[in-house]
Nucleic acid binder design. Structure first.
Lengths: 214, 214, 214, 214
DNA sequence: CATGAATGAGTTTTCATTCAT
DNA sequence: CATGAATGAAAACTCATTCAT
């Protein structure tokens, strides 16, 4: 039925509209300081309406994280399974994907941290929780797999691949944090782009194994 | 007056007792989910008493950050000004200092993030704010100075020294975050020690310049 | 006009459909915990449609009560005015009618209680309120009239007839309540039928006057 | 310690103060229409204070029921175990106890009905729930025991003792309900005292077995 | 007529902070 | 100084009712 489809599409658009507004508010104020009324105002809707699309503030928040995780997974899966790319290209593409996430919503990786609270987890619907867990695990394992390949081909120093994947993730979470902290300490001119480029470079060198090393 | 001194010392001890309790609670639950009553209970004091030593929850929190920043500054200043150490030793000592902070309170660097909220800043007393700003800037500039030395002596790749300092900080903030996130996604066995060691290694290699590189 | 009639009949059928659904929902959850959406879902209609047939939740509820009151009145009037029945038969028929109401909707007598709230009453349309008042009064007075007859013929103990009518009503309201309360306290096996039979018997004996009594 | 005792007594008095206020408000408006703010205003306290003594609206309500159940149990246990009373005296004392409850809070027996909702039960602390269940069962079984005695001594008609206990309880719940319903239908002059007296009389007659009966 | 998405006032609950003892 | 009961403003969430389609 065409009507049902249209309804579903409209419903999905409202969801997106709310998520976009929520992202803006969460990014600006952080999870705890953002009120549902703030989000409603930003979405130009009434508070009650939000609850027609998301069961609770936590579910709304988790849905935002989910979207980012899905994006990362698509990218990572694509990069990892592309047999035409050599290792160097894959590493570059991976870092590019993470920077895309960063550009989309710099705080999401840090805010995701909020989900760790066991109280929060209890209130999430099991489906949501399961998808989040699965996607997180999948992204990480895909990255680890890529590093394992690099180690095998002797292009990356021989360290536990999962630890390397963790460092990639941590470095980016940390940069976000740090960018915000710098604002706090009134660092006159925080050149994030420069820092990111340097990080990529440092990180790339550290991973790369060269003859005569060790 | 001996009496006045004793009083002052007792007062300082109470402050420390409260801060130790607050650290434990903030570390466990995060800033927003920690209540003043939680902290009072942990300190075996009444809520009212906390307010005799700290003007507000925010000031208590900022005082915790301050303590960590002071510790880092002492270490960094010492390392940087020690003319007996060569660059490699300095870099190692610096990373060691940061890991000490991490061992003392893994979440402090992340939680510090909370201060970024402009609402929070407004409620802090100007003296507190100034000291925080100064210490943060100082620590970062000292680190940057160290890297500048390394670059000059051709021991470190030629990148903006401040950016390198940022990356050090960010990497460690990020690792903490990530450790917590892994709990969330039920990562089967998260070997933080391994990850940290690898990070040190990767980071060290990336910073170190070698003949024939580039 | 045949068309107008058909329309009217269809309209009446929708009303009935909604009332049946509402009865089910109110019976299950009670007045306050039942939402208009619950009722709409049960009636397989949309919430908006309910409002085409009933001005408000209160009016819908009052309409349900009205239906029961009308049923009781028909029965009571019939019993009381039937000159062919002797007193004993009338009393029996009356109790039978009440049990019929009970079988139809055990909670209606209790739920009716909700109407007592003065706020609720204010929002009812005067016509509805008037009919409810009149029917209630009429049913009670008819019963009282019957008891007065019994007293006159020396078949029933000499007590205020209205008080006797009240007790009949109260006993049945109470039994319903009590049946529900027993579920709450996990009474192992609540044999309502047995209790009702006993109640009829005890009550009948109490009303019956016997030679030598008093 | 005298201080601890005094504190405990003061705390208990506040609890009572709140419960008295809550009783008044619940009695006047019913459970659902009573807001915590209403109760706080009646108790001349702030809403937050109520939550220092009762975990939720439901727990406050359940505590009220508990108090009444405790009272009934004390009375019933006393009457049943008093070997100096004959059956007739016991029955009279029992009805008297119930009327005392009724005089104290006419609506409590009806309102208790609210607890039956499974949603409500889930939110109650298990201890509270257990005590309510135990007390209810105990009161009922004690009453049933008394009737069993009466049946054995051939003073009460031979019916299931538990059914007789149920009827006692139901009759009184019902009278309360009915008293309120009468207000609703603007019954000109509702003489509750007369109805109650008649109910006692009718009920007593119904229970009493006499030679030559049946 | 029928729909069902949207509304927003109203409710329960939390917690930083104060102040009388 | 220390206490901890009390406060009350603010937040999450609900639901009867409306109205554009």
């Amino acid at each position: 039925m065409g009507i049902k489809e249209r309804k579903a599409r409209e419903r999905e658009m409202r969801r997106q509209q709310i998520m976009v507004a929520a992202k803006r508010v969460f990014t600006q104020r952080g999870y705890e300081k953002s009120t549902m009324e703030d989000i409603a105002r930003e979405a130009e809707l009434s508070p009650g309406t939000i609850y027609l699309y998301f069961k609770s503030k936590d579910e709304l928040y988790a849905s935002l994280c989910l979207r980012v995780l899905r994006f990362i997974n698509v990218k990572v899966d694509h990069v990892v399974s592309d047999t035409a790319m050599d290792y160097e290209a894959k590493q570059k593409a991976l870092l590019g994907a993470i920077q895309e996430v960063y550009d989309y919503d710099p705080l999401i990786l840090n805010n995701m941290f909020h989900l760790q609270s066991s109280d929060t987890l209890k209130s999430l619907s099991p489906e949501l929780m399961n998808e989040i867990n699965e996607l997180s695990r999948n992204a990480l394992q895909a990255m680890a797999g890529m590093f394992a390949q690099g180690i095998e081909k002797d292009l990356v120093i021989d360290r536990h691949p999962m630890a390397l994947a963790d460092i990639v993730w941590a470095l980016f979470s940390g940069l976000v944090l740090w960018e915000e902290s710098k604002k706090m300490i009134n660092a006159e001119r925080y050149d994030l782009q420069n820092t990111l480029t340097t990080a990529f470079d440092v990180f790339g060198r550290g991973l790369r194994k060269r003859r005569g090393d060790e």
